[in-house]
Write a protein that binds this DNA or RNA. Structure first.
Lengths: 63, 63
DNA sequence: CGGGTGAGTCAAGTTTCATTGACAAGGTGC
DNA sequence: GCACCTTGTCAATGAAACTTGACTCACCCG
């Protein structure tokens, strides 16, 4: 399960902390997801999709 | 987080056990997800979407 | 040289997801 | 009657997701 978080974040010039705040999770969670330590829960994946205005499939990719 | 699993399953005349087998999870997991006890993990949500040939957003709905 | 920010990581703890095994209740059909 | 299947649920366990707090390192800017 890969994801395009880092790119989407860069496009908006957000730090991991910025993104964490918008998603209401810790900065460490954002970092862990970006660096592939684990996958987000489904509810969090939806929040991410909503935030970026993209379908989940456009952000998270089967690997 | 609601889901349309029960309907999709009914359309195909699958039991919870059938679906569990196809998803490679326990029958109890399918039941727990259907009855709203908890949400599936993102990888499992992708497997469900793939199985039914639908986007995640067409199966799981924000509540 | 410091001070600040962003990123990565660790440890330790709680919550959520998923498991096996078991049991009860309803329906079907013989 | 009773066998069988499906669904719902429970307890106990383990793994994954998420938390707070702390620390390091690189980078930039004054």
């Amino acid at each position: 399960m890969k994801n395009r978080l880092k790119v989407l974040r860069a496009e908006r010039d957000w730090s991991q902390g910025d993104l964490a705040e918008r998603l209401q999770v810790s900065r460490q969670s954002v970092n862990a997801i970006e660096t592939g330590k684990y996958d987000p829960s489904l509810p969090l994946a939806f929040r991410i999709a909503d935030l970026f205005g993209l379908p989940i499939e456009a952000i998270f990719l089967r690997d």
